[in-house]
């Protein structure tokens, strides 16, 4: 193993940097955009539910989006496997590389040094979080979900809310712990991506002068702030969802799109997107 890493040092280092942006970072953007639509989706819903409350329309839009991703995106399993493999590669090498450093923020408490430190910490914690998140909501490891709710793309908001709340009846104490873990996890991961985007530009030699690094820093801060907002919208939007109400709305969506089957009719997809 070490000799393989030594021989392919450059390639592995740069693949480590690249995978953080493509596919992982690109997926993160798409994922948080979809998740946050549970809040803003009411403004984007194109048909039906004209007199429904804004929050209900958000749930309906989110459901349509999630159902579309899970039924209409081609080669979904291939995309997912690529993502899981990239995440595993990025995480394993990341831990291997992080072990070569020794934090010294106590003596040199510079902002850049803190970011260096938090980048590594957020990598460790973020990976644990992603593992829990994917295992429970994607791979159906319901024994790790308090309340045992299995997430379903056909009832995306209601089952998500129940998994976060720890029950279908409302927020439980374990649910608070899970939700806090989600809050810390997504926040750290958004930081990890924004800061990684900033350092990747130095690694590849795109930003050279201090001024260029500062300018790119503003861009990465803006990207990070926007993603953070989306992450929190998605999380707090899901926490605000009441399981039974959401289930009713999701059933309505299925009826409206004529989709009690897994596949929405092509017409509704063309209209909706």
């Amino acid at each position: 193993m070490p000799s393989f890493i030594e021989k392919n040092h450059f390639l592995l280092r740069r693949l480590h940097s690249l995978t953080g942006i493509v596919p992982i970072g690109v997926f993160l953007i798409a994922h948080l955009l979809t998740n946050s639509s549970i809040i803003w989706g009411g403004a984007a819903l194109r048909e039906g539910m004209h007199d429904a409350p804004f929050a209900d329309k958000g749930i309906a839009y989110f459901q349509e989006e999630v159902a579309w991703i899970n039924t209409q995106v081609p080669h979904l399993l291939l995309i997912e496997i690529t993502l899981w493999a990239s995440l595993a590669f990025h995480a394993i090498l990341g831990i291997y590389y992080a072990k070569t450093g020794s934090a010294n923020t106590d003596r040199y408490p510079y902002q850049g040094n803190w970011r260096y430190r938090v980048q590594r910490l957020s990598g460790y914690l973020g990976f644990l979080f992603i593992f829990y998140h994917v295992a429970t909501l994607r791979w159906g490891w319901t024994f790790l979900v308090p309340g045992g709710t299995e997430w379903s793309f056909r009832y995306s908001a209601s089952t998500l809310a129940a998994a976060l709340h720890g029950s279908t009846a409302g927020l439980t104490t374990v649910g608070v712990v899970v939700s806090l873990f989600y809050f810390v996890g997504v926040s750290l991961l958004v930081f990890h991506f924004a800061n990684g985007l900033w350092t990747a530009a130095i690694t590849w030699g795109l930003t050279i002068s201090r001024a260029a690094q500062r300018r790119w820093g503003y861009v990465c801060t803006a990207v990070g702030a926007a993603l953070m907002l989306m992450a929190w919208m998605g999380l707090f939007g899901a926490l605000a969802v009441k399981h039974d109400d959401a289930k009713r709305i999701e059933t309505q969506v299925h009826q409206a799109t004529g989709a009690d089957s897994h596949v929405a009719p092509a017409g509704s997809v063309a209209d909706g997107h």
Partner: peptide, 19 residues
């Protein structure tokens, strides 16, 4: 500088430039 121990091992903490 391409190999092990080279530029890729820098973690961009940027303490060097501060001190």
């Amino acid at each position: 500088l391409m190999g092990e121990g080279g530029v890729n091992d820098c973690g961009n903490a940027q303490n060097c430039v501060q001190v």
